[in-house]
Design a protein around this nucleic acid. Structure first.
Lengths: 259, 259
DNA sequence: TTTCTATTTGGTAAAATTTACCAAATGAAG
DNA sequence: CTTCATTTGGTAAATTTTACCAAATAGAAA
């Protein structure tokens, strides 16, 4: 995956390729079957958990960098990514949380990290993303030791200011959910009203009337009823629906709300 | 205000005090008497116009930095400032728009700028602010040559990506207006319904029913009716109102909308 | 003093939207 | 052909939004 030589070169010369002092951290939310999770990883050699993050190449846009970072750290591609806030408190990184001597003792490849560009003050741009966690097997990538889904209410305490990042990201996601086609990323092309209802309930963390909510989606033209049904065992077969992206982008402009 | 020595020192050694590669740019909106304006400045030696901006000290939070930058560049203090988006396209600064040779020829104090930290790639954090432009006389400060209010629909084309910044800032301001006590910054402690109505119309750039809009503000408890009237010449004297901050912060949490 | 004018404000009816929830329809299993 | 769990059409009530009328009012003009 990544050789010692690559890591050493990143520590010593990374600032030539990447912009120093700025990073991107991604809160990647995963939904499946009524559950909301978030992807938490460990940096190689570090003790605690944190959000997957990385640096911006000098040739990239921020959105491109966020996409690449997610791909490098988790092997997930093509996520819906959204910038939501930039974090820059001078004490956002508690340097005493990082026992560099112990890390170097454990992993000698980090021997030059103390005087490297990585130890400089860093401002971090927060992105959130959303995906179906059952379709995706996160893989620890460059410099990350692990990479796992946690239930949103069972996230372990995170390093730095990443707890706050998760909180703010979730708030931003929930606001956007009302007028951006986020649910589209979490459902198959054809889905039932019950399914889309469950997505919104899980992401918003609150109950929505099972009858009125889908009715409004149809009324607003955000989804289209198809002439097909799905077989779901010994019950009435539900109709299938598909998204109407044209209406969604209009809703975005006008600022429709989905209660 | 600032000596040549200070400018030279900033160019040569500023990176020790400030974090390089990151700046803050502020879209400062000004309201008064139905009019919406924005503060546009000129950097000393540069040709075009741009938003007032600056760098972040290594000891500051982002909000503190934004406040200091506004103060340094415009002599305005105590603004309501809000971070809204971070801009980082690698080509957001068109270096060929900057004729450094000509600037140096005009102002020799800039002679070392070409090889300085200021010419490096920079990501910018966007803030917006709002104030009453009649109460405030902007003063060009450190390294800015001018500093003036422009009608929001008569802003000259701006350098870099600052046109986009103005657009995004205004959009963010308008969204926030529905649940943050922004109008409070633009009105005296005691104000009439007509006055607050005018503020919202100007900031949103659209008409709001003169009767229903204030009625809703009262109904939601966002403003309180006082037992005083104001004398306004040969017409019926309007009642005075004041803000109810407690209700406002509750509205913020619940996400009330003001149509 | 009375009339006039411009503005503020109480009010209300109609329209639209949201909320709550009933009961019929449905598809397969027993 | 009955049963069961689920989907879905429907509707009535509650609430909110929209549109707009007309009375109240304060000083200026007559």
């Amino acid at each position: 995956m990544h050789t010692n030589k690559e890591v050493e070169d990143f520590i010593e010369n990374g600032y030539k390729t990447y912009i120093p002092h700025i990073s991107i951290d991604c809160a990647i939310f995963g939904y499946h079957d009524h559950q909301l999770k978030i992807l938490v990883s460990q940096i190689e050699g570090f003790d605690g958990y944190c959000l997957p993050g990385g640096y911006i190449k000098r040739t990239e846009t921020l959105d491109e960098a966020a996409g690449r970072i997610v791909e490098e750290k988790t092997a997930i591609t093509g996520l819906y990514l959204q910038q939501y806030k930039t974090f820059g408190d001078p004490d956002r990184i508690k340097w005493n949380e990082l026992d560099t001597d112990r890390i170097i003792a454990k992993l000698p490849v980090f021997k030059k990290i103390k005087s490297s560009w990585l130890m400089d003050q860093t401002i971090s741009i927060g992105y959130y993303a959303i995906t179906d966690f059952s379709l995706v097997k996160p893989q620890p990538g460059f410099m990350s030791a692990s990479c796992e889904w946690y239930d949103i209410d069972k996230v372990p305490p995170l390093l730095f200011d990443h707890d706050q990042m998760v909180k703010d990201a979730l708030q931003a996601l929930r606001q956007q959910l009302y007028y951006a086609p986020i649910a589209e990323k979490l459902l198959p092309k054809k889905f039932t009203l019950t399914e889309i209802h469950a997505v919104y309930e899980a992401l918003l963390g609150k109950r929505l009337d099972i009858r009125n909510f889908p009715k409004k989606l149809v009324f607003l033209g955000l989804i289209n009823k198809l002439n097909e049904k799905r077989n779901i065992g010994p019950h009435r077969a539900p109709y299938l629906y598909s998204f109407n992206n044209r209406q969604y982008s209009r809703a975005l402009k006008r600022g429709i709300s989905l209660t």
